[in-house]
Amino acid sequence: MTFEEYAYARGPALIRLARLLCGDEHRAEDLVQDVLARAYARWGRIARTDRPDLYVRRMLVNAHHSWWRRPTNREATVAEPADTAGAGDTAAELAERDELWRQVRALPAKQRTVIVLRYYEDLDDTTIAEIMNCATGTVRTHAKRGLDALREHQRISTTGVC
């Protein structure tokens, strides 16, 4: 597969992953563009791997984490109106979806990455571990902590107990 074929076929999925990771459509597009530019320079080596998509996804996750490490990139993203709503969604469903997404975005970076890769990208723990360059047990730990935080927030908001 040539780089152009790969970029054309997987570009939208990479942008979706980046958008879920960083929560900002424009920054996601910039992130994917940077990653694809770096991948293009190494495409001969990447294409020879068993799973080039896994390699590029790892580049994307690493680039996202590196971006946040830079002191100049501590800006906060603002919530956008949900543009993925279905025609039959009610206001309550939209509000619930928006609140859940705000809570996912509030998770620490690694927990958010695992939650996005597992539940939005539908990847298994082994693949996520390869993308994040960590052990599968670490993936499960981040997933458990992230889900626990989301459940705790849900419990607090439902019962009103702090």
Rank of each mutant, 00 (worst) to 15 (best):
A9M: 03
R10F: 07
G11N: 04
P12M: 07
A13I: 02
I15K: 12
I15E: 10
L17Y: 00
R19A: 06
L20M: 02
L21Y: 02
L21E: 00
C22A: 00
C22V: 13
E25R: 15
R27M: 05
A28W: 09
A28T: 07
D30P: 00
L31W: 05
L31N: 06
V32H: 02
D34N: 13
D34G: 06
D34A: 10
V35P: 02
R38W: 09
R38T: 14
Y40L: 11
W43Q: 11
R45W: 12
R48K: 14
T49N: 07
R51L: 05
D53V: 11
L54F: 07
M59S: 08
M59F: 10
A63C: 12
H64N: 03
H64Q: 01
S66Q: 11
W68R: 14
R69E: 15
R69V: 00
R70H: 15
R70L: 12
R70K: 15
T72A: 09
T72G: 04
N73D: 13
E75Q: 03
E75S: 07
T77Y: 04
V78A: 11
A79F: 06
E80G: 06
E80R: 15
P81E: 14
P81C: 07
P81N: 13
A82S: 13
G86W: 07
A87R: 14
G88F: 10
D89E: 08
A92L: 12
E93D: 12
E93N: 03
L94E: 09
L94T: 10
L94R: 15
A95E: 10
D98L: 14
W101G: 01
W101N: 12
W101Y: 13
Q103A: 15
Q103F: 04
V104T: 12
V104D: 08
V104G: 11
P108T: 13
P108V: 13
A109R: 15
V116E: 00
V116W: 00
V116F: 00
L117M: 13
L117V: 02
L117C: 04
R118W: 01
Y119R: 10
